[in-house]
């Protein structure tokens, strides 16, 4: 009666496990069966993993189609995302950045895919409304107040340089902007944007023409994420439906609702934003009127 022990490729049990008495005969048997003896366990594992992977390779056509899907996905994301670089930016300053980048998603110019701004929030350029109005940054045409009737006070203002980027992230142009912090709760951005960079505002929940200036107030939900964090599927879906804006660059993840008042006057674009709890569209409308009336 003959017996033998098989050699297992997967765990690579060596043929030396075979009983010594039958060793030589078993070796010959193993050779006769064409089983590799001298390949190490690890090499075998490597070989088998490669074959496992080969069982589902992409064809050349599939690779091309996948690349095309990738390009489409990148274009779509760039249209919906506003990327801005603020290292260690706190959530409160995100409202400032939103004021800078404006409200809305698609840009009037098809070439502009996104905006990027760089703000150094501890560098104060303006201490009061008078300095803002005297600034050459906006050709001495900007208007601002030191205090609103709801008590919000001018804290500080700074110059912002906004870059308009194409779909590949290359800079098309830049334009100047002044950003003002009112009591850390309201942020006013005054800018002279590039043609086509104004953006399409979100649907207005409130609008009024005051002293020949049309003011629109809109509300939008925001999700702020750190640069290396990804939104989940539900949020991606809301973004695609236009119900959520996702912005990257904050130091922590947080959800906020922004209320924004938007108007144009004397060639400049104004955007007043708040993300405070209970932000009220009527309140923003009245604040906008106070600046227009100045």
């Amino acid at each position: 009666m003959k017996w033998y022990k098989g050699t297992q490729f997967g765990c690579g049990m060596p043929v030396s496990d075979v009983q010594e008495g039958a060793g030589r005969e078993t070796d010959r048997t193993a050779q006769a069966q064409g089983i590799r003896k001298n390949v190490s366990k690890e090499k075998l594992l490597q070989k088998e993993l490669r074959k496992l992977a080969e069982s589902s390779r992409l064809t050349q056509k599939e690779e091309k189609e996948l690349l095309s899907s990738i390009h489409s996905s990148i274009d779509e994301r760039r249209k919906n995302m506003k990327l801005f670089e603020h290292r260690k930016m706190k959530i409160a300053a995100a409202a400032a950045a939103i004021a800078v980048l404006g409200v809305g998603t698609a840009f009037a110019s098809g070439k502009i895919a996104s905006l990027s701004s760089s703000v150094i929030t501890d560098q104060v350029d303006y201490k009061n409304a008078q300095e803002v109005e005297a600034s050459d940054t906006l050709y001495k045409k900007a208007r601002a107040v030191d205090e609103f009737s709801n008590g919000a006070k001018f804290v500080r203002g700074f110059d912002v340089n906004v870059s308009a980027l194409d779909e590949n992230g290359a800079e098309i142009g830049t334009y100047p902007s002044i950003n003002i912090d009112y009591s850390g709760e309201y942020f006013l951005d005054i800018s002279d944007p590039l043609e086509g960079a104004e953006g399409q505002p979100y649907p207005a929940v409130l609008s009024e023409t005051y002293e020949n200036v049309e003011i629109e107030v809109s509300v939008m939900n925001y999700l702020f994420l750190p640069p290396d964090q990804e939104p989940d599927e539900e949020d991606m879906k809301l973004q695609e439906e236009g119900k959520l804006e996702i912005s990257y660059g904050t130091d922590e993840a947080e959800r906020k609702t922004s209320v924004s008042a938007f108007w144009k006057e004397d060639g400049l674009t104004y955007c007043l934003v708040t993300m405070k709890e209970g932000g009220d569209p009527e309140e923003l409308l009245e604040m906008a009127k106070e600046i227009i009336a100045k």
Partner: peptide, 10 residues
């Protein structure tokens, strides 16, 4: 690859 391109600056 989408993330690769969108986060290339990092």
């Amino acid at each position: 690859f989408v993330k690769c391109f969108l986060k290339k600056d990092t």
